[in-house]
Design a protein around this nucleic acid. Structure first.
Lengths: 253, 253
DNA sequence: CTCCATAACTGGTTATGACGTGTAATGACA
DNA sequence: TGTCATTACACGTCATAACCAGTTATGGAG
């Protein structure tokens, strides 16, 4: 016994890193260096169990972390897949500042006000490329940032997609990301139009502001990579939610 | 047997919702309606086990989801706590568009280039309110969005804080959020200054752009609620990463 | 040949149990 | 009285074991 001072200074810490972290790193590397290509890949959980000689819970923790990072996504009953890298850039560009904020990762969620099928009508029908009497699905949500409402979103999608979306966790997941990752649509771009308006009674109630308060209104038509419209939205943002943006603009000009 | 068609149409789906989701909702409500106050709260995992009559893994999944949402945070060996709501708004405002993007929730992480102690120097010392020869900790990170570098961040904090940060998962967590949630600092606001510049050789290599490519340079000094500087950063953003912002500005003017 | 029940996958959920590590209060020893 | 080992308790990690729920291929019944 030479120096049994206070603590045995962690001599044998061969692996202070949890198993699932090590596995996560290995898998991440395999994805980033291209060993696992985008879409349609990844061994099943069972295979990974025997490959690494660990239990399923460990594999799942590793995969779950990678999913949080967005590198992979899972489809129940089918398997685990590598996300398409390109996907995100499009989404990032067309989401703009509003949803960027609402997705900052902390204390954001949406409350689904309604989700129902109805006739497209002239305006929405023209955008989505369907007849005015054709049925589409309308989704209304209030988006919360830090427990306070920040935007009111009205989303229109085709009946087929809408019925699938009804089963999703719309309170915490982005429609864009569901379309892109879970449903396999490649999003191409979006046309958007921004204007200022005043909150009417309904909007004021949803956003918890005074009637007549300034609201930013965004009209956004999202299209697949092939140029086919897939998602049309009206977004109403509280005007007082963008101080940071203004500040930056002033400095930037 | 009246209509044993294809499937028994899920008559008995008393609870199609997973246990951990139900528990998560209950806990979320308790937090949002104030039953559990900010900081210093939440029953331990063992207590929740007996309260809800479920296993620990279920409790942990519920808590883990709430942590992802940012409503709670955990401290090893101590317990689980409710996050302070106020925290986020400040962070949201002073993070601005750059980190909002990088935190959109998918495929973002940081690579720690270096983390070391050094003398503050005149510029940093003045900002942080310490002498030029006093030791501070410098953290250099490359922030990845969608597997491509989007920004190069240089962060300066006091020696005490820096040594704690060294033990954190800086690759996936925001320094702001660590300061706010884990360390209990109340962030008050920030001064920031934005300018355009051209990438030098070092920066070009970190951001994987051509030397001379346009870069957005942000100087940001973050302060606690009491007005004491706590975090000083230089942020270098790839100029080509902000197309979406430009587009929105054009429409907005 | 079509339809459909079944089986063999996949991931999703939950239980039980164990051990590790960090935190903080306790108490014994110097 | 002050230091330090003990201890109790918190969350962190990992294993084993089921069963549930979608997906898809197979194969038999019509």
């Amino acid at each position: 016994m030479d120096k049994p001072r206070k603590k045995p200074p962690a001599l044998l810490q061969v692996s202070p890193v949890p198993l699932y972290t090590q596995i996560k790193e290995i898998l991440r590397d395999s994805i980033l260096d291209g060993s696992y290509q985008a879409h349609q890949q990844m061994p099943s959980e069972s295979e990974l169990m025997s490959t690494f000689g660990v239990s399923r819970i460990t594999v799942r923790q590793a995969l779950g972390d990678l999913q949080k990072e967005g590198l992979i996504f899972k489809i129940h009953g089918k398997g685990t897949y590598v996300s398409k890298p390109k996907a995100f850039q499009n989404v990032a560009e067309l989401q703009g500042f509003g949803e960027a904020m609402s997705s900052m990762g902390y204390e954001t969620f949406s409350r689904v006000v309604s989700l129902k099928g109805l006739a497209a009508g002239a305006a929405v029908g023209a955008k989505l490329g369907v007849g005015p009497s054709e049925e589409v699905v309308e989704l209304r949500r209030v988006r919360y940032l830090n427990r306070a409402p920040i935007s009111f979103d009205v989303t229109y999608v085709s009946k087929a997609i809408g019925e699938r979306l009804a089963k999703e966790d719309l309170a915490h997941r982005d429609v864009f990301l569901i379309l892109e990752n879970d449903y396999g649509y490649a999003l191409g771009g979006a046309e958007l139009q921004i204007e200022s308006m005043l909150a009417d009674e309904y909007l004021a109630r949803q956003l918890q502001v005074e009637e007549g308060a300034p609201v930013l209104r965004i009209e956004r038509l999202t299209m697949t990579a092939e140029g086919r419209p897939i998602d049309f939205e009206y977004l109403y943002y509280r005007g007082d939610a963008f101080q940071y943006r203004m500040r930056i603009e002033r400095s930037h000009v």
